[in-house]
Design a protein around this nucleic acid. Structure first.
Lengths: 121, 121
DNA sequence: CTTGAACCTGACACTGATGTCAACTCCTAC
DNA sequence: GTAGGAGTTGACATCAGTGTCAGGTTCAAG
């Protein structure tokens, strides 16, 4: 598929997809005319990248991480280096703290929403 | 307490605390000389603000939300306006989606970490 | 062919919380 | 009173992903 379809199906802008490519997060074949051509796998890849961005990882970390992830086809994946494992563990801990905070904030929002809704005349 | 102690106890930089004040998120008494003076309540407030920032709310939303939150003393809190409730509900939904994504990303990290650790010679 | 939608690269802007520096003032311990 | 750590304001920088525009090329349908 071309970039427009991938953008539509993944919910990520074309701009971002091109950016991902510059960051080494998303390779694309090219047509003879130079247009990007993606396989089905790209949709999952983009969504996963997006989720990692949302988790606060930057491009570089994601780029290091991607080859270590089990692909959808269950293919072979590289093992992470020792240094990378240390960094990823730190990220994981940060994410865990973040999740805790998010749940707390969400509950606060819920309470405010509920309180206001109860008080509606 | 003065700003340095608050920064230390809340884990938020002095710079950010002053910024919070400009955004109406954190009021401070002033000494005759003009230095900020905070009560004990400020520590909780700052931490809560920080958590809301982490949840992706911007200053304006937080400023609207704060007076609707139950204070630590359980004091009276304003009810949110209808419009605000709609916006907060949308934020809550976004946060819930984010939590789901974060858990997924964390699990991916865990798998990579585990895989690499198992393979250590 | 031709036409229009889709795609290309490159450049610039933005967002918004936070870092950092400068120049100055306040507070407290001696 | 004085030294120096702590605080003040104001200005400018940064980060990194994303929006957007310009000017040109490619692709596919008629």
């Amino acid at each position: 598929m071309r970039i427009g379809e991938l953008a539509r199906r993944s919910g990520v802008s074309e701009r971002s997809l091109r950016y991902y490519e510059t960051q080494g997060l998303l390779n694309a074949e090219r047509t003879p005319g130079g247009q990007r051509q993606y396989g089905e796998w790209a949709v999952d890849r983009v969504i996963r990248v997006q989720a990692l961005y949302a988790a606060g990882l930057n491009s570089k970390k994601i780029a290091q991480l991607l080859p270590c992830m089990r692909d959808t086809d269950g293919g072979p994946s590289e093992a992470a280096t020792e240094q990378l494992v240390v960094e990823l563990a730190s990220e994981r801990d940060r994410i865990n703290r973040l999740i805790t905070d998010l749940i707390r904030s969400r509950d606060v929002l819920d309470e405010v929403i509920t309180t206001a809704s109860v008080g509606v005349s």
